[in-house]
């Protein structure tokens, strides 16, 4: 029985009581994510509201988890969804199968599918986590880039430029782009995401003192 060691231990735990706590009050306070964090997908639009997706199914082929289902459709002058000939008639991602690797993003020739930093998508049923176009597609007013109506195959001129930044460029907007349940206007402040109690953005805490 090393009594001195016991007292040393007691002193240590007592001292730790007054240290800064590592806990973040999560649902009310959120940590900033890494700049290239891979979270929930979004399907983008152009400035004029056209969908960027041309229904080429490359993402479906690239997906290592077989989570993506794309069924293409023909654009007609009366029913035009995207520049070029084809558009995604059905576009579904099973978020339970998805491993958030981002290979769909890399495969996409039009920068249509992108992984946003949003990660809170828990739900009660499996079927509710199969995201279809109604959940994935951003609202019409959040389009980015000029629609390549004159370019062959609907490939945009800004290819690669858009995908370099996460989501729909502006993090304050883009973070929320696929989230229909929340009023997007509330995100215009300093927060990435509106939270139940207002919330504040917490930067990555500096390394905990003495915790190494």
């Amino acid at each position: 029985m090393n009594i001195i060691a016991i007292f040393k231990g007691l002193a240590t735990t007592f001292g730790y009581m007054f240290r800064r706590k590592a806990t973040i009050d999560y649902p009310f306070v959120k940590r900033a994510h890494a700049p290239r964090f891979h979270g929930l997908h979004e399907l983008r639009r152009y400035d004029d509201g056209m969908e960027r997706c041309i229904g080429c199914e490359l993402c479906q082929i690239a997906c290592p988890a077989n989570a993506i289902t794309v069924v293409g459709g023909e654009n007609t002058p009366e029913d035009r969804h995207s520049p070029g000939e084809r558009y995604a008639f059905r576009y579904e991602i099973d978020e339970l199968r998805c491993i958030f690797c981002g290979m769909c993003e890399e495969a996409c020739p039009t920068d249509a599918i992108t992984l946003t930093p949003r990660f809170e998508m828990s739900n009660y049923t499996r079927s509710s986590l199969i995201y279809d176009k109604s959940k994935l597609l951003v609202p019409a007013e959040y389009g980015v880039g000029e629609a390549p109506h004159e370019r062959p195959g609907g490939i945009p001129a800004d290819l690669g430029e858009v995908a370099r930044t996460k989501s729909t460029m502006n993090p304050e907007r883009g973070y929320l782009a696929t989230w229909r349940g929340i009023d997007i206007l509330t995100s215009k402040g300093k927060t990435y995401m509106p939270t139940p109690a207002g919330g504040e953005l917490v930067r990555e805490p500096e390394r905990l003192k003495g915790g190494e």
Partner: peptide, 13 residues
């Protein structure tokens, strides 16, 4: 609470 504080947590709050 005390245990949490000693373990750099905040405990029930």
């Amino acid at each position: 609470k005390v245990l949490a504080y000693m373990q750099l947590r905040v405990g029930p709050n």
